[in-house]
Design a protein around this nucleic acid. Structure first.
Length: 409
DNA sequence: ACTGTTTACCGCACACTACC
DNA sequence: GGTAGTGTGCGGTAAACAGT
């Protein structure tokens, strides 16, 4: 996988429009709020290449070769935690601090709501801090009289590190506890000072993305697979059907999985589908994408959407978009993720590729076909198009450029 | 001194997965 | 199957460079 090949002409289009009775079917978004994942980065470096160049030198650079390539996946030694209690304590502490500042419950809640999905992570880290704090004989009250937050954080991080915290954990703790002081009104420089930055150098460096020209698989293998699956949709398991539908949407809309997860959909006339979602990454805004039938219906989102919806009973029509007809429940984010992975694997996509790689290869293919930069920016919805695209999407196109460079007199 | 370009750094949203 | 720990992508911003 890599290199270019010719794009198979997308040909025939058997009609497989499943029932599409009434215009305007409506499905609402599932989630109330998302509940996953945390920020911060990782790669458990056994001493990542932190290398600070001598003073007189230029810029520091952390990703010079030789850092152990394979970003290690979920380290085998996951810390064991008594999570529920911990998170609850964390949230309690957070709320307690705001109440000390006379924040009303509503106000406090709205502060929390300002974080979309990561709050569930912050509260865990704060909980971890709470343990540390209490264990060292301090009370919550003592927290409000802290004069020097940086010291508190530094000591906390240092102790985490000596207790073999992962880099990701160090980063997460720094962020969460810093936040705890930020809401007390401390200014940035009192929190994230020079000494703490020194401490954080290693974990932060370890998480930096290593840039390389990684080949992206061809979108075509996925499309081909979708096309095959479309032949016998009725034999597909519910999860496969789901996976195909989402893959198709992703390939043709370059939306992220999380965005698709919280999407809702309306069917307009003639198999035209309108998908609405909200973008949270970067600027927050709502987005509506309209899918019209493509010449190859077998890979087209419209036909996958209509057959997906057709799986449910009449009375479930208005249920959430990712409602699971068999189980009679709404899919979780993880379930969607698994569904797409099943499809990717079946298509022959190399294991280890993330769901968003579909987005990547879709954009890469467009570039390869000569899409203009404007088209790419519009499709990818990247703010700072050119640089982002250059770094993330056209990596395996460099071969072409190099080949051209070989031409000389 | 001023303008333009590249890259580091921060922090949050998103993705993956061990484990219960 | 879902939770929570761990890993990744990317926008905003400013520092470090580089040119005029």
């Amino acid at each position: 996988m890599e290199g270019r090949t010719t794009i198979p002409p997308s040909t025939d289009s058997t009609d497989l429009s499943y029932s599409q009775q009434s215009k305007r079917r409506e499905c609402t978004s599932s989630d109330g709020d998302t509940q996953l994942a945390v920020p911060i980065l990782g790669a458990e470096s056994d001493q990542a290449g932190v290398k600070i160049c001598q003073p007189g030198k230029k810029r520091r650079r952390f990703e010079d070769g030789r850092s152990n390539e394979e970003s290690k996946k979920a380290s085998s030694s996951r810390r064991i935690t008594r999570s529920q209690v911990r998170g609850d304590r964390g949230e309690e502490l957070f709320k307690w601090i705001l109440s000390k500042r006379q924040f009303s419950d509503e106000a406090t809640q709205q502060v929390i709501d300002g974080w979309h999905s990561i709050w569930s992570r912050h509260r865990q880290r704060i909980g971890e801090f709470e343990e540390f704090w209490t264990k060292s004989g301090k009370s919550w009250e003592d927290l409000t009289t802290v004069k020097d937050p940086e010291t508190v954080i530094s000591n906390f991080i240092a102790q985490q590190v000596s207790a073999h915290a992962t880099n990701a954990n160090s980063n997460a703790c720094r962020t969460a506890v810093g936040m705890l002081f930020r809401i007390q009104g401390f200014q940035e420089d009192r929190i994230n000072g020079f000494a703490l930055k020194q401490i954080m150098k290693k974990p932060v460096a370890a998480t930096r993305k290593k840039r390389r020209e990684e080949p992206i698989y061809k979108l075509d293998i996925l499309l081909k697979h979708l096309q095959e699956r479309a032949e016998f949709k009725r034999k597909l398991s519910e999860q496969e059907h789901l996976g195909c539908t989402i893959s198709s949407i992703m390939a043709f809309s370059t939306l992220r999985l999380a965005e698709i997860y919280r999407a809702s959909v309306i069917q307009l006339e003639d198999n035209v589908w309108q998908l609405s979602t909200s973008i949270w990454k970067g600027d927050n805004y709502d987005l509506t994408v309209t899918f019209r039938p493509l010449s190859n219906l077998k890979v087209c989102p419209t036909s996958w959407l209509s057959s997906w919806i057709a799986l449910r009973n009449e009375e479930d029509r208005s249920k959430a978009l990712w409602w699971r007809p068999k189980k009679q429940k709404v899919s979780s984010y993880e379930y969607l993720s698994k569904a797409v992975h099943i499809i990717m694997e079946a298509s022959g996509v190399v294991k280890g590729n993330s769901v968003t790689s579909i987005r990547k290869s879709s954009i890469t293919k467009s570039i390869n076909q000569g899409a203009t930069i404007q088209e790419i920016n519009r499709a990818s919805r990247h703010k700072d198009g050119p640089s982002t695209v250059a770094v993330h999407y056209d990596m395996n196109l460099n071969d072409t450029i190099r080949e051209r460079l070989t031409n000389f007199e």
